[in-house]
Amino acid sequence: MSNVLGRGEKIFQVIIHIILIFMAACAIIPVWVLVAGSITNEQELILSGYSFIPGSISWDAYKYLFFKAADIVRSYGITVFITVVGTALSLVITPLLAYPLSRKDFKARNVISFIVFFTMLFNGGIVPSYIMWTQIFHIKNTVWALIFPGLLMNGFNVILMKNYFSQNIPVELIEAAKVDGAGEFLIFGKVILPLSLPIMATVGLFVGIGYWNDWTNGLYYVTQPQLYSLQNLLNRILQDVQFLSSSTLAQAAGGAAMTQMPSVSIRMAISVVGILPIMVLYPFFQKYFVKGIAVGAVKG
């Protein structure tokens, strides 16, 4: 790449910077409001609402979370565990399924592609899934309940990968390896995977975020607080607040229970705690995309 930028190139860079800064501002301002809300005095939130700069800073929400530190640390542990294991497993089975589908000479390609695609259109709903996982695989109240149902692999990611393989990996490369006497597994491991870092990083990111943010598995399959993930903890609180505020009966019966609900700033604080690690870790993760560029360059 030449270091001297042309005039057109300069204008282009200025324009994309302006647009990207606008996009970044749109993304960052609301998140800032969230963070500011979590350190605003509860009374100020109710009386004068959210602001960009809190009038009176209060760490009460975080103090409250500190009381619950044991729960939160444990739920972090659960979340990290399921994210790491789930993503790793997913990055094994997803490319293994996607790669043969990208091979034009693979006989069962169309049938299996359809089988994969079909799962994106139809689903049996939560009740049959629940019965399948709890009655046949008995995963209720185990950590596997947070890993296996739903999240491990989905048709979208398989198709995404398949597309990447068929577009970016020259058939000649595979043929050449075959001529050298390499078997299919060797080709997959030594030729395909090294060229697939960008897509592995992309799918890994999506799956990882899926695990990190998931709370439905915890909702349905886990009743022991020892197994609550962070998002599960947060969503239980948020959902109960909503349920109580909309249910006349629950309020009439349990007026006292209403007071147990964590305040707005605590709800904000928990979600800040939930996204913080991703904000911190993502830039490190990002280097795999950059590596992908390097690989592309070598290829050329």
Binding site: T119, F122, N123, G124, P128, S129, I131, M132, G150, M153
Partner: peptide, 9 residues
């Protein structure tokens, strides 16, 4: 994960 529960439709 998908086809088994689909029978539940």
């Amino acid at each position: 994960n998908n086809y088994g529960p689909m029978a539940g439709m």
